[in-house]
């Protein structure tokens, strides 16, 4: 972003990478896949790079409002400084926070999730799918992330993206408004669960595996981690893969 700004360029959209997108070894592949799609399509975009800080979502959900607002206000200063108008992000937690919570602190942007962005690219014909890739005809189930689904009522965009791949989309019993959490929301990602009889991600993975799907599609970095761990726990990592939507589209596009 800084580079474009010094050259006097204004990108169409800011890609908010998020902490998992920047640092998580597995999830960096999702960032890379999404950026490759954007480059291929020729979308004018920028990232904040080292100027980006955590949105503050986990701090706020864990109760630390001071820390959340410190992060948020600093991020808003940076984004307002670059006169950012539109933001796309692959993380539903970042999406929810920037879209719904930054306005109260002076950050007003048009924020969309990458599933919506990909759907738009597909609908506009900018992304053309071969439909013959490794997913063709395969059974795929989509795990709704809470912060995309119930929190923001985005249920159809990710499903439209999956259907564009010419696959068989199978739903879990608990889906859409009734979708079961992966167990990582509300800052649970950053601590051990409270004592109980089972881990939430195992419960959810069992449900996903029961559909007979060979791929579990997700649209959230935390869900990706939780579901991947769940599949490993069930010793199914050889025949069941967990992918983010952007990875699936990039694979199909052969990039």
């Amino acid at each position: 972003m800084a580079e474009m700004s010094t050259n006097g360029q204004t990108p169409e959209v800011l890609f908010w990478v998020g902490c998992a997108g920047s640092f998580d070894e597995r999830y960096k592949a999702v960032t890379q896949a999404f950026v490759k799609i954007l480059n291929k399509v020729g979308v004018s975009f920028a990232v904040l790079g080292p100027e980006e800080a955590c949105t503050g979502d986990p701090a706020r959900r864990a109760g630390n409002e001071f820390l959340f607002q410190m992060q948020a206000v600093a991020n808003i200063q940076v984004m307002n400084g670059y006169e950012v108008k539109k933001v796309v992000t692959a993380c539903p937690h970042c999406f929810n926070t920037i879209k719904n919570e930054y306005p109260a602190l002076g950050g007003n942007y048009d924020v969309i999730h990458h599933s919506q962005f990909l759907q738009q690219l597909i609908n506009e014909g900018k992304v053309t799918l071969k439909g013959g890739g490794e997913f063709k005809g395969k059974k795929i189930t989509f795990h709704d992330s809470c912060y995309l689904g119930r929190a923001n009522s985005v249920y159809e965009a990710p499903r439209e993206v999956i259907k564009a791949l010419d696959v068989e989309l199978v739903e879990m019993k608990r889906c859409k408004t009734k979708g079961l959490c992966c167990g990582a929301g509300g800052a649970q990602m950053f601590k051990e669960p409270e004592p109980g009889k089972k881990d939430i991600n195992i419960e959810r993975t069992e449900e996903a595996l029961a559909t007979g799907a060979s791929t579990i599609a997700v649209g959230c970095p935390f869900c990706l981690t939780m579901m991947t761990d769940g599949v490993k726990n069930q010793n199914r990592e050889a025949d069941v893969k967990v992918y983010d939507l952007a990875e699936m589209i990039a694979k199909d596009m052969g990039i």
């Binding site: 902490c19 920047s22 640092f23 960096k28 080292p50 800080a53 503050g56 410190m70 950053f190």
Partner: peptide, 19 residues
């Protein structure tokens, strides 16, 4: 988050390494 602006302990300067 206070020291490296991320819930995980990574250096902020490494944020763009994925690129």
């Amino acid at each position: 988050m206070e020291t490296s602006f991320s819930p995980w302990k990574f250096s902020p300067s490494d944020r763009f390494n994925w690129a």
